[in-house]
Design a protein around this nucleic acid. Structure first.
Lengths: 120, 120
DNA sequence: GTACTTGCAAATACTTTGCAGGTAT
DNA sequence: ATACCTGCAAAGTATTTGCAAGTAC
């Protein structure tokens, strides 16, 4: 049940998840959402990420260490995703060069999405 | 005056800035900090960034488009910075490949800092 | 005086916590 | 009955906004 909520498209806010679950089952407290998410994050099944809009977003962790990064539209705020093995590799190398023991990384690209560019 | 507050080491929270300014001048409202920061961000002199701890951080933008990225310690929460031209280049290439018009990017590496590794 | 900035306090998120009631074992 | 999970409501943070007072021109 808890995994089911995380197994959706791309990153969702706690509110998104609450709305979706309220459609499927009856009453769902927002607190339960946060509690479940906290657990899942601790288990490494869900990643929590911030994209500068003050609200946390959550997304299911890919099984094979596989993961994507995010594009945020400055205009409409929409978040989409992309993958780039070459970038991934460059990050690995950068991570090896610093004196921290790196375990994870986040990349966010900000700009204007095609829709908003067209709507100008 | 406003620039002076942004011209500090690495990223600072609004609260940090308020504390610092209260030491220099007398009373400073937290609201003024946010108002000044909002203005500076809009002017492109300050960058706002989130590192997943729910509180926004601010840092002065480097003049020459020069910029660094961040390392966050999972243990102590300390934030440090690093630069990597090679990574920078890889990001540029990735940005060119997506269909958004990219104007900025953030990279955060998470892991354990040397101090915390030693303290284990 | 007019226009702009300021600090305080109230308002608004978003997230976490306390608690009483319900479910499962 | 015990232990756990839930929803609601209250508490806690971080940030924004309204407003009266202060400053600059």
């Amino acid at each position: 049940m808890l995994d089911a909520l995380a197994a959706r498209a791309c990153c969702a806010t706690a509110q998104d998840l609450a709305d979706e679950l309220r459609g499927e089952r009856g009453r769902v407290g927002i607190a339960s959402i946060y509690r479940a998410l906290e657990l899942l994050v601790r288990l490494g099944l869900v990643r929590r990420l911030d994209m500068g809009d003050g609200t946390a977003r959550f997304e299911a962790a890919q099984p094979g260490g596989e993961h994507h990064h995010h594009l945020v539209c400055d205009r409409c705020g929409r978040v989409s995703q992309f993958e780039d093995p070459h970038l991934e590799e460059a990050i690995e190398r950068a991570a090896a060069r610093v004196d921290h023991r790196i375990e994870a990384h986040d990349v966010v690209l900000r700009g204007t999405c095609p829709d908003c560019t067209a709507a100008t």
